[in-house]
Design a protein around this nucleic acid. Structure first.
Lengths: 157, 157
DNA sequence: CCTATTATGGTCAAGGAAGGTCAAGAAGCG
DNA sequence: CGCTTCTTGACCTTCCTTGACCATAATAGG
């Protein structure tokens, strides 16, 4: 067990917030001030600890009134995201989408949209590249599904 | 809700007016006074939030008795498949998706999936190509939406 | 009539308020 | 020591807000 680094402390703080709420909104500058560190330290923590593979999603907006939003994804999320390959055939992708729809992770019409997006004609690129792009697209779309699923589960207020 | 900047508040106010009436007429100076801001702030809100791409039209007249008129365009105008360009920026695509969701053409979570798919990082290609692929993807996804909408129960428009 | 005045709204560039990126160095840990 | 993980600071991008200056329409005066 290592000593609590600053990054660990910030992680712990955020986890505590996320334990209460599946969705937390905060300001980078405020947090950096709170822990007396450089603002980019916050990004380091987010990048290394709150990744999709670990079951979290981060959204943010810059400029005046900017914010950082942390979302805790449903439990099965990390698994389904971490073993996504970097390169994916249309058939493989379709099977994954089927499983998501069957598992109720996404609605039937979200699944239909995803199937349309992984279609080879829709991507319209030559083959070494196409499977690459498809993998990135599917990952992003699955993340979106998990995000909305997480927000739904929260008792929409 | 997030930080609610002044621009967000003005937008919310205008949306509220537009919810009651598809056509709203108001005075820039009056509104600026109401929100205690520079008149040009009103233009900023109009230019960034009430664009044709988002389904609004703005007309105005200067001089004595001048006014600003806001019109909410019918949900489908301009968003049809036939005039989908062959090349599409992320922002343009997002606005089109917003309109589809507002018009009830697709569900909120289908819209979330589509937004994820048109994201520049998700596509992950250099720029001349990226906007190209995005246009094809969006077209395919919208077609999928329309198909499932048709299955759900043939609406009028 | 024609012009000056006044009452609107429009444009644009500068400045401020967030967050993002990256690379260099420091600190831990075999 | 050498490798990985932290931490920071300099610089960038995005979004918001304001103010100075411009354009146009109605109207009042000559």
């Amino acid at each position: 067990m290592s000593a609590q680094t600053l990054a660990d402390q910030i992680e712990a703080h955020l986890l505590q917030l996320l334990a209460a709420d599946a969705r937390v909104e905060l300001q980078r500058t405020y947090l950096a001030h709170m822990f007396a560190c450089a603002p980019s330290q916050i990004n380091y923590v987010l990048d290394t600890r709150f990744t999709p593979a670990r079951g979290y999603a981060v959204e943010s907006r810059r400029g005046g009134g900017g914010f950082i939003r942390l979302v805790r994804l449903p439990a099965h999320a990390g698994a389904s995201l971490s073993d996504l390959p970097l390169c994916l055939s249309q058939t493989e992708a379709e099977h994954m989408i089927d499983r998501l729809a069957d598992g109720g992770v996404c609605s039937p019409d979200a699944a239909a949209v995803m199937r349309a997006a992984v279609d080879r004609q829709a991507i319209g690129l030559p083959l070494p590249l196409r499977d690459d792009v498809r993998a990135r697209l599917l990952r992003a779309m699955i993340e979106a599904c998990l995000r909305t699923a997480a927000l739904r589960g929260e008792g929409s207020a």
